[in-house]
Design a protein around this nucleic acid. Structure first.
Lengths: 295, 295
DNA sequence: TCAATTAATGCTCAAAAGGAGCATAAATCG
DNA sequence: CGATTTATGCTCCTTTTGAGCATTAATTGA
């Protein structure tokens, strides 16, 4: 690609959980924070941390690369745009209460099942998808039907919270999200600039998958917290309600936390013990759940 | 980065399993196949598939992006090199028996535990790591000791086959791999060009993790196969020996395969039934093992 | 002050998944 | 034909999960 103009852009989905809601840093023009990769930066991640801190106010905690795109249609004019997406987690910080934090379910209302199945699914999504399905040939119909059945199963016990991206892509193909059409009526969720909602979907999917096998939630928690607060954070990310007793059993048998000795007070109900993340697990728990029958 | 010379390079770890060994496509100069990202390509993956097919002979099957680097020290001269790593799987093809396939354990002899713990670990690695450990301050010693204990545990039942990258990085830091020093004596495994061995480590780790929750092994298998062949392929990738009966129970209860009706013949021992991958699972098994106590 | 309400915790029980190994079947090999 | 080799069927026991009942300890509102 020598000789052609290439621009490298870093995009970051910067997430915090405040007020029991996952929030993301977003520009007023509905764009993810992004910046150019500067010559001075030693590595991509370094570049990201640099401008993210200057922009968002607080330093990034956990950072992970999501995906690199260079699709032709992303280019503006005849220069080629390569964009590298990142997921970053920051600890809730009430001080940095800027108004550029926005709840992520605003862009994905169908992904929040904490208060039951969102009505938007039955009321808008399924009709829209069905219309789209019917508009194809028989072969296409069958294939679409199958994809719909997986993304938005009839039996909601089969709802897989990790399929955020597949669902978004389905809605896109069906022309039900604004970015796909430019239309603005009866569209689902709040649109974002460019393909940023797609990047957010990727980030949500990654994070929802990751919390299950890596102790990343703690990157979003304050120093000490109650088990209920922890559970609420996980529920907020997963968009699901969890079984309380089993959740604590899980956390405790995995040895993820330790009591600080302190307890909460003031709130209604029995005071809860405060816990802190056991950083040791990051090293000891090299154990990633085996799924192979080793001999 | 406007104005600066940027070069985008695609690197691919192209894997096949033949003769019970994972093999990778590699240049005579020990470099991973790589090529520039051309202006004409619509997407990165398209670009990759294009030159990979012309280079390797056979079309790529499963493809997945690994990581994008742009570290300053990767640059040659004053142009900036961005390299995007991919993992690609191809079905074993005896026809395309070019001699540019090479077994991956050649570069990672310490990762193959199928015939017991490799002697190289006790004979070369541990002494080398211990020397390196001792050369630090007390704090450094403790930290290194911990990392060593996880990467190369005393109790081999704790060996985690997924930690390929961590182990490689440890050996690098300890100066035990050639790329780190330029020395060529008593070094571990066959070195590769640039940082390509590191990319291979990333690919191995990703693949070893992925076979546990996604049916990707089948991307490496021929149309029909016996359960033992399937097991051998998984063992080859994981570098571990598995429990035969439990392996088949796993495969069968997961509904991953179906009998073709045919059986093997000729070989010694009781003939084995031939199976084929049930492609349906790709759609039905939207189920990614839940780990959260949903309510 | 006391019952009602709200959370936090402790425990139990049954079902499902995972780990090890014994036993039998059906070919090829010398 | 007996020895050897690989395939397959099954059992048993241990852990992990899924669901819920019961009890404890605060706050809140008559």
């Amino acid at each position: 690609m020598a000789g052609q103009n290439i621009k490298i852009e870093l995009n970051a989905v910067i997430v915090a959980v405040t007020g029991g809601e996952p929030q993301l840093l977003i520009d007023p023009d509905m764009a993810l924070p992004s910046g150019p990769f500067e010559t001075g930066h030693r590595t991509l991640e370094q570049g990201l941390r640099n401008w993210a801190q200057s922009k968002g106010g607080q330093p990034l905690g956990y950072v992970e690369q999501l995906y690199t795109f260079a699709d032709k249609d992303r280019a503006a004019g005849h220069e080629r745009l390569v964009s590298i997406g990142y997921l970053a987690l920051v600890h809730a910080n009430p001080a940095a209460k800027q108004n550029n934090w926005s709840p992520w379910y605003r862009h994905f209302p169908w992904e929040d099942h904490r208060k039951g199945v969102p009505v938007i699914i039955a009321k808008t999504i399924m009709p829209g998808l069905n219309t789209w399905k019917s508009s194809g040939s028989d072969t296409v119909k069958r294939e679409r039907s199958q994809r719909i059945g997986i993304a938005f199963p009839k039996d909601m016990r089969r709802w897989n919270e990790e399929h955020v991206l597949q669902r978004y892509e389905l809605l896109w193909e069906a022309g039900l999200v604004e970015e796909a059409q430019g239309k603005k009526t009866n569209m689902l969720g709040t649109a974002m600039a460019h393909d940023h909602r797609r990047i957010l979907a990727t980030a949500m999917a990654r994070l929802r998958a990751k919390i299950k096998y890596r102790p990343v939630v703690f990157e979003l928690m304050p120093e000490s917290f109650t088990l209920l607060q922890l559970q609420n954070a996980v529920e907020a990310l997963a968009g699901l309600r969890l079984h309380k007793q089993n959740f604590r059993r899980l956390v405790e048998t995995q040895g993820l936390v330790e009591e600080t000795g302190a307890v909460t007070s003031g709130a209604s109900g029995r005071p809860a013990k405060l816990f802190a993340f056991r950083r040791e697990v990051l090293v000891e728990r090299a154990a990633t759940g085996t799924k192979l029958p080793r001999s």
